[in-house]
Design a protein around this nucleic acid. Structure first.
Lengths: 341, 341
DNA sequence: GTGAAAGCGCTAACAT
DNA sequence: ATGTTAGCGCTTTCAC
C-alpha cells in the first residue's frame, strides 16, 4: 500500500528506473512507445513522485517560510493570503510561523525554518526584537531573506513596505483640512520604522499648515490594552485632542468607543482615523476612516520578489525595496472637508 | 559553505559516518570519549542534521497540513493559532492552505498536501464541497485525517466540533427570556452541519417556550453580501423580527448597522446575537452579544488528537469525536433578562 | 567500540 | 533508445 515508486514501475515494465524517470518527463531520448507505456502505467497505479527524494537530491524543498508577529490579525492574515496565492501558483509550499511579538519565539521560529531547509524566508519582525543575529544567520545559511512591513533596518536585504509616510501625511492633511487642530498621534515603539515614518508624515503635515507640534499629543499606544489607559488620559488633559490618528484599526475602534463613552461626539467633537482599513472599519459606529495598506498586494509582491531571488530571476543585483501605495478611505469617523466652490 | 554533514565530521575526526551518527545520539555502544569529541566538533561547526535525508529514510516529514476555508477570518485564524502552538511544541511543521470556500481549490489543496507527503491533515471543509472523493483519497493514502468545525458527515474519521446545538439553544433561550418572540435565524446552507445543528438548537429553544416556528424567520444569510439583501427585506415584512440570531459575528455586526440605519433601536427594538465572539464584538455599537467558540482551544485539541493518531498514541480504536464547549457572552446588543426577585 | 555496506526514491553522468 | 552506476545525508543491520 505504501506509494508506488519508479522502481516498481521499472520492474513491472521491464525497464530500468532511469528510463522510467526519463519517460515520465518525456525526455527526448526516450521512444514515444515507452513514454506512453510508462505514463499510462503510472497514471493507472496512481504513481506520485516522492518529493522528499527530490528534495534530498537538490537539498532544496521548494518551501518558503513566513514569520509574522501574529496570525489572528487582519493585516497580517491578509498579507499571508497574498503570499499563499503567489506561492501556490508558483508551486511553493508555505511554512507559517508566528512570533507572538516575542523575540525569543522569533529566534526559535527562524531556527525551525532553517532546520526545515526552506529556500527563503519572509519576515515581519516582532515588536520586541532588538538584536538581529538570527536574521544574519539566515543570510549566512545562504537562505534568501526578505522583510515586509515591519522591516529590520539593521539588515541589508530586500524589503517590501507600504508608503507609511505618505499614508500618514495624507490622512493628517485631511484631518487638518476638515478643521482639526489638536491632532493626536498614537504610534508604536521607536524601534519600529513603520511608526517613525508615519510620525514623520504626521509632523510634516502639521508643519505644512504651520501647526505647532505638541509632544503631549504624541503617545505610544499600539494595543487595545494601552488604548484603554492612554486615550482616557489624553481626553482629560490639555490640549484636548480634536482628532486621533491611530497606528492601527483596533486602537482606532477602541478610541471611538472610549470617546463616545466619555460623552464626546465622533466625529463632531473628535475625529478618529485608523490604519489598515480592515473589516472592522465597516462595523464601528460611526464607520471608521482608515488608511488602506493593501495587505494582499503586499503579500503577493513580497512572495514574488522572494521567489524571483530564489530562482535567480531577479535582475537587480543589489538590495531591492518595493513600496506599496496606501490609500485614505474616508468613512464616517472623520469630519467632512468643507469645499467652498 | 553548504551545511556540514555527518560525513564531514567523520572525515575530520577519522571515524566512520555511522559512528558519528551514533555518537551524536549518545548511543550506549559508543565511548564517552568519542561522543564528547563528536558533539564538540558538531557544536563548533554548527552541524545541523539534514531533515530531508531523515525524511527520505522514514518517508515521513513531521509535517501536518491544514486546510481552512479562509485565512482572513477571525475564527479560523484563531484555530490556526491553536494548531500552530500545539504542532510547534510537538516538533511538527505546518503546511497551511486555504480553499477560499471553493471545492476545486480544496481538491487541489488536498493534492498538494499529499504530494508534500504530510503525516496528517486537518480540514474544515468549504461551503461548496458536496463530493468527498478527495477526502477519501487522504485516507487511502494512509494519511491521518481529522475534520474540525466544518466537518464532513460523509467520511468516517476523527472530528472536533463545538457544541453548536447547545450554543444556539442557550443563546435563543436567553433571547426569549429577555422578551423576544419573533426571533430570526440567519444560517448557512443545508450542507453545513454546524448550521443545521444550530438550527435544531434554535427550534428546540422555541419549542420549549411554546413559540411557533415561523419559516419566514429562517433564512440562509452567512455573508456580509447576503446580509445587505436579506436583513432589510426581513425588516420590511411581517412578522417583524425582534431578534436576530446570526451564524457569525460579521453578519451580526452588519445586522446592527442595518437595523440602526432603518430606524430601529438595538437592543430595545431588535436584539442581535452573533457567533464566535470575535474581536469585532467589542467595537460594534452597541457591543455585540455572541457565542464564544473557543477557536484556540479547538485548534489545540484538534492538533493534539491528530498528532496522537500519527504517533499511535491515541488509545481509542474507532473514530473519536471531541466537542468544545461554547459560552454565551452577553454584551449590549441584546436586552437584559428581567429577574424578579 | 567501531566500521562497512546497504538502502530510502530519485536523477544525471557515463556507458552501450 | 535504454541500462548501469553513483550519490544526495542519514541510519541500521551485520561484521569484526
Amino acid at each position: 500500500m505504501g506509494q508506488i515508486t519508479l522502481k516498481d514501475i521499472a520492474k513491472a515494465l521491464n525497464l530500468s528506473p532511469s528510463t522510467v524517470s526519463r519517460a515520465m518527463r518525456n525526455h527526448p531520448a526516450i521512444s514515444k512507445e515507452t513514454c506512453r507505456a510508462v505514463q499510462e502505467y503510472a497514471e493507472e497505479h496512481r504513481y506520485k513522485p516522492n518529493r522528499l527524494a527530490l528534495q534530498l537530491r537538490t537539498n532544496k524543498n521548494n518551501t518558503i517560510g513566513v514569520i509574522v508577529p501574529e496570525i489572528v490579525h487582519y493585516f497580517f492574515s491578509t498579507v499571508l493570503d497574498g503570499i499563499q496565492q503567489e506561492a501556490e501558483s508558483e508551486g511553493y509550499n508555505l511554512l507559517i510561523s508566528h512570533s507572538n511579538e516575542d523575540y525569543e519565539r522569533e529566534v526559535k521560529s527562524v531556527e525551525t525554518l532553517l532546520d526545515a531547509r526552506v529556500c527563503g524566508i519572509l519576515i515581519s519582525q516582532s515588536k520586541t526584537t532588538l538584536k538581529f543575529d538570527h536574521f544574519q544567520d539566515i543570510i549566512d545559511n545562504n537562505v534568501n531573506l526578505l522583510f515586509f512591513d515591519r522591516i529590520c533596518t539593521g539588515i541589508n536585504t530586500d524589503k517590501v513596505v507600504v508608503d507609511d509616510y505618505t499614508g500618514a501625511f495624507t490622512a493628517v492633511e485631511y484631518l487638518i483640512e476638515s478643521g482639526c487642530r489638536n491632532i493626536a498621534f498614537l504610534g508604536s515603539v521607536p524601534s519600529m520604522p513603520i511608526s517613525n515614518n508615519r510620525r514623520m508624515g504626521y509632523e510634516d503635515a502639521l508643519r505644512k499648515y504651520k501647526i505647532a507640534i505638541n509632544k503631549n499629543l504624541i503617545e505610544v499606544c499600539d494595543t487595545v490594552d494601552l488604548a484603554k489607559v492612554v486615550i482616557p488620559e489624553m481626553l482629560k488633559h490639555d490640549p484636548l485632542p480634536d482628532a486621533f490618528f491611530c497606528i492601527n484599526d483596533e486602537v482606532a475602534a477602541y478610541c471611538i468607543q472610549i470617546a463616545k463613552s466619555m460623552g464626546f461626539k465622533v466625529p463632531e467633537d473628535i475625529s478618529v482615523c485608523g490604519f489598515t482599513n480592515s473589516y472592522i472599519t465597516e462595523v464601528t459606529y460611526p464607520r471608521l476612516t482608515s488608511v488602506d495598506q493593501h495587505g494582499f498586494e503586499m503579500g503577493k509582491v513580497a512572495a514574488r520578489l522572494l521567489i524571483n531571488r530564489i530562482e535567480g530571476k531577479e535582475k537587480k543585483e543589489g538590495v531591492v525595496s518595493r513600496v506599496i501605495k496606501t490609500e485614505l478611505v474616508i468613512k464616517e469617523s472623520t469630519k467632512l472637508v468643507q469645499t467652498f466652490a
